[in-house]
Amino acid sequence: MRNRLSLVAVVAAIILIICCACGNTSSPAEAGSEIAIEDFTGRSLGFDHVPERIVALGNGEADIIYALGGNLVGRPTSELPQSLETLSEVKQIGTAHEVDLEKITLLHPDVVLGNSPMNTKDIPTIESIGSKMLLTSANSVHEITQQIELFGKLLQQEDRASELVDQINGQLAEYKAAVAANSPKVLLVYGAPGTFMAALPSSLGGNILELAGGVNIAADYPRLQSYPQYAQLSNERIVQANPQYIFIMTHGNAEQVKESFLKEMADNAAWNHVDAVKQGHVEILPNDLFGTNPGTRVMEALTLMRNQLSAS
């Protein structure tokens, strides 16, 4: 009798295990299936689980990962926008321009989110420490929505990513339907004290400007080889185009940059004949929205630009 009861218990245990296995509702990544993605350079990357330790080299990437509920263990060495203040204790690891490999190594990240083409050279180094580098870019609103979708797939948060993208596309559709009849001419400048460049339509700032209804007077300027989204300033062409607005974008100290730019204009009397100067329409744009990729906040940047262009 005792042997018979033992046999019954064993059979019951086996049945219970089989039932539990059949009822397993884990996500594909949790069940051992690989998460296969392709970054903006066409490189294929595979992950056997949802990355739990993520390093972002840019605030825009950090913003998107945060919005999708991902776990950031490393963030850029830069001032955080108010929307990301909760990440203030996250380790700072340099920037896309200057990667601090030693700090990144100590964090043991599953993946490092970098910029294409800027961080292409860093791929072998990141892979040498056992991590993977995922490269994207944000030279337009559309590319930011592509970033959101890609990171959503990486984190298995496709539904949340779709919600964020739908919000952006919905606002874009409303803006396109209400384009102003008279588009003001604008010079969009990016730089630091002593070094200034004109932003082309192929840059994020240039794309936002056009979507906001402005005319970029530097649209046909020859691009710089080292910074293909920007062009060298031409005093003669700027004066001839006579922009109604001049907007300045920067990573650095806003007031110092504006003061430096105004000094350069003062050294050339021809600038005094430009409408933007005569009307006092020379403004610094917020660096958290225009000096870097604003991530999910890109429509805030577009709204601000529209409001600036409608100012009297």
Results as ranks from 00 to 15, higher is better:
109 P>Q: 08
250 T>R: 03
216 N>S: 03
278 K>M: 15
193 P>N: 04
216 N>Y: 06
18 I>E: 04
182 N>V: 10
154 L>Y: 07
251 H>E: 10
138 A>Q: 07
301 A>Q: 06
292 T>G: 12
59 N>A: 10
7 L>T: 09
230 Y>M: 01
157 Q>V: 10
186 V>P: 00
142 H>A: 11
263 K>V: 14
282 V>R: 01
286 P>W: 09
262 L>H: 00
186 V>E: 07
98 E>P: 02
101 L>T: 03
240 Q>D: 11
163 E>S: 14
2 R>W: 12
97 H>E: 14
133 M>N: 09
21 A>V: 09
258 K>P: 02
225 Q>P: 12
65 I>N: 02
33 S>F: 07
296 T>S: 13
37 I>H: 09
1 M>K: 12
280 G>D: 01
291 G>S: 04
11 V>F: 11
167 Q>C: 08
147 Q>C: 03
110 D>L: 09
268 N>T: 03
136 T>S: 15
55 V>F: 07
131 S>W: 05
54 I>W: 12
51 P>G: 06
179 V>G: 00
267 D>N: 14
101 L>S: 00
184 P>V: 03
176 K>W: 02
78 S>D: 15
305 M>I: 07
76 P>S: 08
89 E>T: 05
80 L>D: 04
202 S>I: 06
213 G>N: 14
61 E>F: 08
176 K>R: 09
73 V>S: 04
262 L>M: 12
266 A>M: 05
240 Q>M: 11
80 L>K: 14
293 N>P: 07
183 S>E: 15
126 I>V: 13
275 D>P: 00
286 P>H: 08
212 A>L: 13
254 A>Y: 00
211 L>N: 13
139 N>W: 01
152 G>C: 10
68 L>M: 13
167 Q>Y: 13
175 Y>R: 12
22 C>S: 06
281 H>T: 04
195 T>W: 05
125 T>G: 09
82 Q>K: 08
270 A>D: 06
119 N>M: 15
244 Q>V: 03
90 V>S: 01
252 G>L: 11
258 K>I: 02
205 G>D: 02
211 L>I: 05
166 D>A: 12
36 A>Y: 08
282 V>Y: 00
141 V>W: 11
20 C>K: 13
298 V>R: 02
173 A>K: 14
221 Y>L: 11
228 P>D: 03
145 T>R: 04
23 G>E: 14
151 F>T: 04
256 Q>H: 10
49 H>Q: 15
235 N>F: 10
234 S>A: 01
288 D>Y: 06
236 E>F: 08
182 N>L: 03
120 T>H: 08
166 D>S: 14
144 I>N: 09
165 V>R: 04
244 Q>K: 12
82 Q>W: 01
150 L>N: 04
202 S>W: 01
273 H>K: 05
121 K>P: 08
138 A>E: 15
66 Y>M: 07
40 F>C: 03
264 E>G: 03
5 L>A: 12
28 P>K: 12
166 D>L: 09
288 D>K: 02
111 V>N: 04
289 L>C: 05
213 G>H: 06
251 H>F: 15
45 L>W: 15
165 V>Q: 06
108 H>A: 15
244 Q>P: 00
242 N>V: 04
219 A>P: 09
76 P>A: 13
242 N>H: 00
289 L>E: 11
48 D>E: 14
48 D>Q: 10
216 N>I: 01
189 V>Y: 00
172 L>F: 10
43 R>V: 03
254 A>W: 02
162 S>Q: 15
173 A>G: 00
185 K>A: 14
104 I>R: 13
171 Q>W: 09
